Amino acid sequence: MNSITDTKAPDWDWLKTYYYLRFVVSAIWVALAFTVAKTAPPLAAVMLVAYPAWDALANYIDASRSGGLANNKSQMLNFVVSVVTAVAVAATLPHGMHAVLQIFGVWAVLSGLFQLLTGVRRWKSYGAQWAMILSGAQSGLAGTHMLSKAGGVAPVSIADIVPYAAFGAFYFLISAVSLTISDARRRSKAVAA
């Protein structure tokens, strides 16, 4: 995995900011899904398309700050899968939530795998990536659960995606806090030296 991100100094401030931003956006999405979107189908539809679209944008911006998509293959794949998912969700919404949940399930499995790979790659430069690795693995399990529910006959809604998004928000917060603590320790060691 030789890339620019492996050889240049890690950008601690950027990664912390990125993880905090991902937490805030996911937390807002969860709050809206639990409240307003439950009774406003047009808002729920927009949110269902926006969630993977935001993930694509976030991966693109993060990769751009870390040497570009070409140097961050797992983020490039996550970007592509998220764009395809946003388009597929928009096209599938008229066919019902079971079909949409199926798409979300596949996306959760794939994006979780790519997030796990990104966390493993970043561990070398940043450390404190255990929560991102765990989040990637959990995403795969959540995707499998969504696929199971999508194949059933019980009614499904945006609320069936909320736990996935909520755990994602939690893991981004844990990652941000872990990096903040690691960075503070690193800086205090540098001052003491």
Results as ranks from 00 to 15, higher is better:
50 A>W: 11
40 A>T: 15
100 V>R: 00
76 M>K: 12
74 S>M: 03
32 L>C: 07
113 L>C: 07
76 M>N: 13
110 L>C: 10
120 V>N: 04
77 L>W: 15
60 Y>A: 14
118 T>R: 10
56 A>F: 06
98 H>P: 06
104 F>W: 14
56 A>C: 13
35 T>I: 11
35 T>V: 10
118 T>L: 09
123 W>A: 05
57 L>Q: 09
88 A>R: 01
35 T>H: 04
60 Y>V: 05
55 D>K: 05
55 D>C: 12
117 L>Q: 15
34 F>E: 13
48 L>N: 00
106 V>A: 15
63 A>T: 10
72 N>R: 09
84 V>D: 11
42 P>L: 00
104 F>E: 12
45 A>Q: 13
43 L>Q: 02
32 L>E: 05
33 A>E: 00
56 A>T: 03
120 V>I: 12
74 S>H: 12
110 L>I: 01
71 N>H: 11
41 P>E: 09
103 I>W: 14
70 A>R: 14
96 G>M: 04
46 V>W: 12
44 A>T: 01
63 A>I: 08
51 Y>N: 09
49 V>I: 11
40 A>G: 02
51 Y>A: 08
98 H>R: 05
41 P>K: 07
79 F>T: 15
67 G>C: 06
54 W>G: 03
79 F>Q: 12
32 L>T: 10
59 N>E: 12
43 L>M: 07
72 N>I: 12
109 V>Y: 05
72 N>L: 06
81 V>G: 04
62 D>P: 04
34 F>R: 11
32 L>I: 14
70 A>M: 11
39 T>L: 10
37 A>M: 11
69 L>T: 08
95 H>G: 02
98 H>V: 02
94 P>F: 11
65 R>H: 10
108 A>N: 09
97 M>P: 04
54 W>D: 01
32 L>K: 11
45 A>E: 15
30 V>H: 01
61 I>N: 02
46 V>R: 13
62 D>K: 06
90 A>G: 00
